[in-house]
């Protein structure tokens, strides 16, 4: 395994501490090009926040990271490995579904609409993937799930159905569900956009705790305050390309590009 990683590092110049490594990522739907060459480095244990107007391609880029969308061109490595391909002799062979699923399980994803399984209780939501995909014994999966639920402060909701929870609680359960697969990186797709304003704080608090515990995170968000406080790097995307990137505080205070300045003035 590490041979593959070393080879990729040497070949593509992947830094040793890289968790997400994107070079020249393009994505088209027919004639419509959504991503027009995106480069990004997310080191292990860091938080990258991606902002930008809707339709700028930031959600598509996020979905490329765990191969929910196939790239049209460019490369995207997670932990110095391709998610959906095996590289042999300059050819990228698409991997079989079960291997793809195993690798995809190493990147957790959170959605704007939470997407908890609505026919399952909170506990069932948490142990579904570990027991079905990883074949973890149910007792062990339950014990681990309880630890995670305690971490997000929802241990008392184990037997509730998602519709009985508030949006903020659902998103916290969704975070615990993603963590149950022990992912190397968490991808957040506007995790607080569907929440009532007074519920945003509790979800951001859980994300802050995760970041402090050393979780690598890529967060597509409109919460500029969160990006400034927690983000290690801030990326502004527009029209399928990265316009500007940098340390969050400086970039928010002194954006270089006029487009960044205009966007920030509208959301701040």
């Amino acid at each position: 395994m590490s041979d593959v990683k070393d080879e990729n590092r040497a070949r593509f110049g992947v830094p040793a501490d890289s968790m997400v490594f994107a070079r020249g990522v393009r994505k088209s739907y027919g004639p419509l090009e959504v991503l027009k060459g995106v480069d990004l480095d997310v080191p292990v244990g860091s938080v990258a926040c991606v902002i930008g107007p809707s339709g700028s391609g930031k959600s598509t880029f996020l979905r490329c990271i765990n191969h929910l969308e196939k790239l049209s061109a460019g490369i995207l490595l997670v932990d110095s490995q391709f998610v959906g391909y095996d590289l042999r002799d300059d050819r990228l062979y698409e991997v079989k579904d079960d291997l793809l699923c195993q690798r995809r399980a190493e990147t957790g994803m959170l959605f704007q609409s939470f997407n908890l399984f609505s026919h399952m209780t909170v506990m069932e939501n948490l142990i579904e993937a570990p027991t079905q995909v990883r074949r973890t014994p149910p007792d062990q999966a339950k014990a681990e799930a309880e630890i995670l639920l305690r971490r997000v402060g929802l241990l008392d909701k184990v037997d509730r159905y998602p519709r009985e929870l508030s949006g903020g609680q659902q998103q916290r359960v969704a975070i615990a569900r993603a963590m149950a697969m022990k992912p190397k990186v968490l991808l957040f797709d506007e995790p607080t956009s569907a929440l009532d304003p007074e519920l945003v704080g509790e979800v951001l608090q859980v994300m802050r705790d995760l970041a402090e515990s050393g979780m690598t995170m890529v967060v597509v968000t409109h919460e500029i305050g969160f990006a400034r406080e927690i983000g290690d790097q801030l990326v502004f995307m527009d029209g399928g390309v990265i316009i500007e990137r940098g340390a969050p505080r400086e970039m928010i205070a002194n954006p270089v590009s006029p487009r960044t300045r205009e966007f920030l003035s509208r959301v701040l």
Partner: peptide, 21 residues
């Protein structure tokens, strides 16, 4: 809703398992 299958997919569940479960 399509988000259900998408979330399952992101958790590493294969197509058949998503249909069944």
């Amino acid at each position: 809703p399509s988000g259900q299958a998408e979330a399952a997919s992101a958790l590493g569940m294969p197509y058949r398992m998503i249909l069944k479960r």
